[in-house]
Amino acid sequence: MDKQKIYVISLGFTYLVMNIILVIFNENRLNVYMSLFIIGYFSITILFNPRKNYIDIVGIGLFILFSYIIMIIVLDYWL
């Protein structure tokens, strides 16, 4: 099977597993879900290193989102 297809399937499967585990643990904080999705995305992408048509918009967007989540948590802790 094509490496790109394996990458997409792996990413989808990872998200599915993460969602199921978090639901089992009754997690209701959206930032926890997003943080795990971001870590999952970067891990799978580094593992497979797929070819892309364009610059990694998803990676950039998720990185900015992750930075925002961390900033909110740090500010909450300080204030």
């Binding site: 990413l11 599915l16 995305y41 892309k52 918009i57 998803v58």
Partner: peptide, 15 residues
């Protein structure tokens, strides 16, 4: 829904 969004954009980006 958000994971579906991320997957959808990734699929679009891959040749």
């Amino acid at each position: 829904g958000l994971s579906s969004l991320i997957l959808g954009i990734v699929i679009t980006m891959i040749p």
